[in-house]
């Protein structure tokens, strides 16, 4: 009984995180401006990292942490680069 509850609640949490990723994707696709898309990308990578952590909990496997950490580092660097690009690159042509 309790095993079933555990499995279903982990599944529920994962589907909530997947829905959160879908919302972020919608913001990336929809825009309307470049800064909105970058904000969506930033949220998307954080959500993806959390989804990986929940996979780690579900399968009781610690390999997923390294992936989550790498996603966090690379996502941060790419968001910073894109924000910098907006400030200096695109507007002044």
């Amino acid at each position: 009984m309790i095993e079933l509850a555990i499995i279903w609640s982990v599944l529920l949490a994962q589907s909530m995180l997947a829905l959160a990723m879908a919302f972020a994707l919608y913001r990336i696709a929809r825009g309307p401006r470049a800064q909105d898309r970058i904000l969506g990308l930033d949220t998307l990578y954080v959500n993806a990292m959390l989804l990986l952590l929940s996979f780690g909990i579900r399968t009781a496997n610690t390999v997923y942490f390294e992936t989550a950490l790498i996603i966090a580092v690379i996502g941060f660097a790419s968001s910073i680069a894109l924000a910098k690009f907006l400030m200096r690159g695109e507007v002044i042509e």
Partner: peptide, 14 residues
């Protein structure tokens, strides 16, 4: 579940 719900609300705000 609480963490996933919080994340979902944050993305809903987006």
């Amino acid at each position: 579940l609480l963490g996933a719900a919080t994340t979902l609300i944050g993305s809903l705000g987006l």
